[in-house]
Amino acid sequence: MRTKIKFSSVVGCLVLVILVVPLLIVIVTSFGEESAISFPIKGFTFEWYANVFQQPDFVEGLKMSSIVAILASFLALLVGIPIVYVLTRFDIHHKDWFQTIFLSPALIPEIVIGFALYQALVISLQLPLFISLIVGHFLLCLPYVVRLITAGMMEFDESIEEAAWMVGYDKITTFFKVVIPNIKQSVVAAFILSFITSFNNIPISLFLNGPDLNMLPTSILNYLENNYDPTVSAVSVILMIITASIMILAEKYLGLNKLT
């Protein structure tokens, strides 16, 4: 018994080191003075952070990625919550078919979704890129919303809803005054997870961004193709700070286990 516990703790600690060290190296290299990324670094500077904000693609990209992530997550909740409500509370035929349809965006590879939307929405229908981006990211977020809200509805006791009907609330009032407040945590968790998923996405944005429409991750990818300097390290650190802040917020209001 003893040897197995020892073995698993050695592997466990090793895995933690493997997970953390690469990110630490990125953090350290963002402060190096040399224009080629090197580790260990020589000197100490904040110059690369200043350089991040001098890249219009990064600044615009950060704005655009945030806007798209917020709109797409919101849209996914707006469409997803009624769907889940019907699937968990109504007695309808072929429930699992519907479930599969609404989870189907997660079955198709993201890069294929991006490519298909580019052909259909941008080329055939001539829709603006921004609209197509929102559509792509909405599809990306919907399965997360469906999954998390379903879990929330399962935990929420149906009889509370029935009690509200019995005291005379109509269905719509009950939905907004009883159901929504009771699944609030799942709604917030779904929003946070959708936001992060959309904000970090590359394969869909790859096809749907253009010269005037930059998303942050694809801008970094483009930048990396032509440059290899600590600006990328610096923008990476900024992204890590954003992730950490979201995690702290999530932990404070939900508990992190809600996110997985």
């Binding site: 466990g12 933690l16 997970l19 953390v20 690469p22 990110l23 190296i25 990125v26 290299t29 990324i37 580790f39 992060i196 904000f199 970090n200 590359i202 991750p217 970094i220 990818l221 990396l224 290899y228 990328v232 390290s233 990476s236 992204l239 890590m240 992730t243 950490a244 979201i246 995690m247 992190l256 286990n257 996110l259 997985t260």
Partner: peptide
């Protein structure tokens, strides 16, 4: 357990570009 879970969760929520870029430098 909580500390370790946070260390495991953090990379999942961090952009793939960042995590791959780390290995370019390595």
């Amino acid at each position: 357990k909580k500390v370790v879970s946070i260390i495991v969760l953090f990379p999942i929520l961090t952009n793939a570009v960042v995590r791959n870029f780390a290995w370019i430098t390595i």
